[in-house]
Structure formats: C-alpha cells, structure tokens
Nucleic acid binder design. Structure first.
Length: 257
DNA sequence: GGGCCAGCAAATTT
DNA sequence: TAAATTTGCTGGCC
C-alpha cells in the first residue's frame, strides 16, 4: 500500500481552539513510523490516555511496511459473516450492519451481539501471530478476536460499550487497526443525556495504521465508544479487538451455582 | 451544498 | 419491572 495514499486518508480537524482531547495525528505517526521502519516494532513508546474512569494506552505496534503486508493478508484471508449473521433488527426494521464483521477464537467460545449469538471460527496463523505480537507488547494473552471491516467512511458503528457479561471481569481489550485512519470517539455514560449533570468532554482518538490501543479497566464501565461516519474517508479500515471471553460452560456454572 | 450531530422511531433482552 | 440496546432518517447548524 502506498504511503502517500495512507497519509492522505485522514486529515485531522481540530473542532475547537484549545481542544484538549487526546488525539493522535496520523501524519505525525506516519512520519515517526517512516523513521522507525528499519527498527523492529516494540521499541516504540506507549502514550497514555487518561480521563475520569478512562484508562487507555496507545502505541504503534507495527512498522508501516509490516502493517501494509498484514493489511493485504487480512484482505486475502479473512472471511466475514454474511446473511442472517450480518443483519440486525432495530425499531422493528431489519438492517444490514453498516460494516462487515467476524469472530475468531478458542474452540467453543460464543459472543452475543444484539440478540444474535456468534460462534467463533478457529484461529488462523495470521491472527495468531498478531495475537502473539500483542502478548509480547502487553503481557496479555487473549482467547477471542472480533474483526470489523469498514469499507469506507460510510461504514460505522454506533455508540456502545462492550458486553460485560461475556467478558472476563476487569480484563483489558486490545484494539489493533490497519488501513485508513478513522476517528474513534469515547463519551462518558453520564454525559450522554440531554441535560447531563456532569460536563465531561468526549475523548477523540485517531487510530493509525498498525497501531494498538489498550482499553483498560474500568474504561468499558464508564465510557461508550463509537466509530462515526466520516464521508471524506474513501478507503477501508480493518480493526481487530482482542478480548478474553468467559467460555459458555463456565458462564452457565456461574449463573447457576 | 454537504458534513456533522442530536433526537427520535419499537421490540427484545436482561 | 424498568432500563438498556441496536441503525437509519430527519432537521438544524455551521
């Protein structure tokens, strides 16, 4: 993939002067990455993102060269859910989810999404190698990955928290991004209503090609996240969120002690 | 003109 | 039992 194309897939826009939201500029990241192309990844430093009840860490996990190669491999090898598994009923109307998605993970794991239960596909070497890279960088091993592919800026995901019931309590979520830069938005649960009691500013991130975002406890308790529509984005983004899912058998035992 | 955002539309699940 | 949750459409603002 051409570096020039990637560098232009996302122009950062400051909405307000003095905007103090944490954000990561793809152009800076691309420059930094080109300097580091000769270096092995893992030598790059973490950036901390903190707010009330929000704890995230961000780094460039892959050099641009490696990220380009992985993006192409993902495009070749990942098979997304289709048919009933990619449709959803909202307000009595059926819709195709505005993105492509699929789950891979350890044998027997399932993941509930908006009423439908998705079973996982078995790990493939490409995904296992990314999982190992995340383990090397963070010390965390994950048993499940949800892959979302956003074909362009019209594909999106609405504001949500990740389903806590299925997740191992307090376990972090690792989000690895490839392809086009998209704005990622956090909003505090107490700042979502019409007349919020608290004025908590949203947190905006721009997740670069080859980046890793760790969402640590208790981020997922207090903050909703979304990937809004961005009409100017014309190229695809693939995002992998690694999680630790409680196996269904253990969940049943837990619910019925 | 168009990008962005807030608000609103049921039915199902927990 | 009541609250939370999904996406698309509309209208207002810039």
């Amino acid at each position: 993939m051409d570096k020039f194309v990637l560098r232009n897939t996302c122009k950062r826009k400051r909405l307000h002067d003095g905007d103090d939201t944490e954000s990561v500029n793809l152009e800076d990241a691309t420059l930094k990455r080109s300097k580091n192309d000769q270096l092995s990844a893992g030598q790059l430093t973490w950036k901390e993102i903190r707010a009330e009840g929000l704890s995230c860490n961000y780094m460039l996990l892959y050099s641009k060269t490696d990220a380009d190669e992985i993006f192409l491999q993902l495009e070749r090898e990942i098979e997304y859910f289709s048919g009933d598994l990619s449709r959803i009923k909202v307000y009595g109307k059926w819709h195709n989810v505005p993105r492509k998605q699929v789950t891979y993970g350890d044998d027997g794991l399932t993941y509930k999404f908006s009423g439908i239960t998705l079973s996982t596909k078995p790990w493939i070497p490409l995904l296992d190698s990314i999982r190992e890279r995340v383990k090397h960088a963070t010390g965390h091993i994950f048993n499940f990955v949800l892959i979302n592919r956003y074909k362009d800026g019209n594909d999106h995901i609405g504001e949500h928290r990740d389903d806590e019931r299925d997740l191992v309590p307090r376990s972090p979520i690792a989000s690895v991004s490839f392809g086009a830069c998209r704005e990622f938005l956090f909003r505090h649960r107490d700042a979502r209503c019409k007349n919020p009691k608290l004025q908590i500013e949203p947190q905006k991130l721009e997740l670069a090609h080859g980046s890793l975002l760790m969402m640590n406890f208790p981020t997922n308790v207090y903050w909703y996240h979304s990937l809004p529509v961005r009409k100017k984005v014309l190229s695809p983004r693939i995002n992998l969120t690694f999680r630790n899912i409680i196996p269904a058998a253990e969940r049943i035992n837990k619910d019925q002690p």
